[in-house]
Design a protein around this nucleic acid. Sequence first.
DNA 1: CAAGTGAATGTTTTGTTGAATATTTACTCG
DNA 2: CGAGTAAATATTCAACAAAACATTCACTTG
Lengths: 217, 217
Amino acid sequence: MLCKDTVRGNILEAAKKRFTHYGYAKTTMAEIAADCNMSPGNLYRYFPGKLDIAEAISTEAGEAAISKLREVLRRPGRSARERLRDFCFADMRLTYEQLEFDKQIYEMARVISMERPQFANRILALHRALLSEILAAGNASGEFSIEDVVFTAEMLQSATMKFRYPQLHSKLSYDRLERELEGVLHLLLNGLDDGGAGREVPRKAQESQKPDTLVSL
Amino acid sequence: MLCKDTVRGNILEAAKKRFTHYGYAKTTMAEIAADCNMSPGNLYRYFPGKLDIAEAISTEAGEAAISKLREVLRRPGRSARERLRDFCFADMRLTYEQLEFDKQIYEMARVISMERPQFANRILALHRALLSEILAAGNASGEFSIEDVVFTAEMLQSATMKFRYPQLHSKLSYDRLERELEGVLHLLLNGLDDGGAGREVPRKAQESQKPDTLVSL
DNA sequence: CAAGTGAATGTTTTGTTGAATATTTACTCG
DNA sequence: CGAGTAAATATTCAACAAAACATTCACTTG
């Protein structure tokens, strides 16, 4: 039997194909409906509107990404610091690759962030919860002694904002982003006292150090 | 005698008045020229184009802001840590107020950042130099022992990106921005070991803690 | 009545065209 | 020539009509 959820699933699937292939703007409700062998009007019995379809798709994708990150956290035999590092790098790589290579997904992300500001917040909250988990584990193991884990997670998220949706904030090569994340994390973990941003890994030749560039203003 | 630089100065002055009063877009080259008692065509003997006039004005303003920040650094009887803190807060307040209350300046900033990506970089470089100064002074006084001062300054700049042009990155109240900057700085200065983001100042009621919201995507 | 239709409706996007306006050029003046 | 002008040109903007589209609704259909 075709329960409501199955139809919803079909719609999402069809829409996802179109959105990722042709882009959000270039996809019409009529097309999505046709792909599902229904009339445009009927779509509205399953979703309030086009944007909600996109949001549902993005939520799914976002939660999938969070799941992947959660797996990074489950890796055994790592210290809390290492875990934090793994987590941040995995996160950056995940979103960078996603947005770098897929113009369409980038478009959707932009539209949804504009029209549904709360969307990004929900994902950020999930993300922050994982950070809190790491910190709490670190506390438990005696590696950290953080008083307010939730607040500290918030601050970590704030300081690494730039690496979360790199394309939205600056245009840097992935190499450079990695190097910067490395440095910032070192600072966040150890503070200024421990030799500043600590430069274990020798930097590449100075020539390649293009300056930062703000973007999307 | 009317040397070339005097005329340039007059043009800049006239343009500045118009730009700040009516906005960049709503100001025409003809108007600027009229204010200077010259024909529009003649402006091009002094500036390559309208955008370059705006850029010159902004550069001046940017350098003025940097000077103000430099003064904050000169305040006597402060430790390097305090200086760093003063500096970051002064910087945030300066740009926040500027952009918050002056729609026209905000417009100019946006246009120039879009059309002349290098502009922001030059200002950021000046800014970074001041950070390096603080760190170097901290090293000299024995308060820090930072190996690569320049690199560490870069990392500090990176981690506080969000507070540099707040309106461009997120929409948060100034209160909340201050609180976040406080937390992030604590983390950057002391690392995770020192009780995390350290919460000397009790946070306000949880109700008021609206989550972050990305903006301008 | 739940599922669906397709025409009707209002909003957004798209094109187009004329007007503004940035920029260039050919020229004047001292 | 250096400083400037004013007309010529090219680009951008604004307004408005047409088309496309999202959304709604009165109406099947099983």
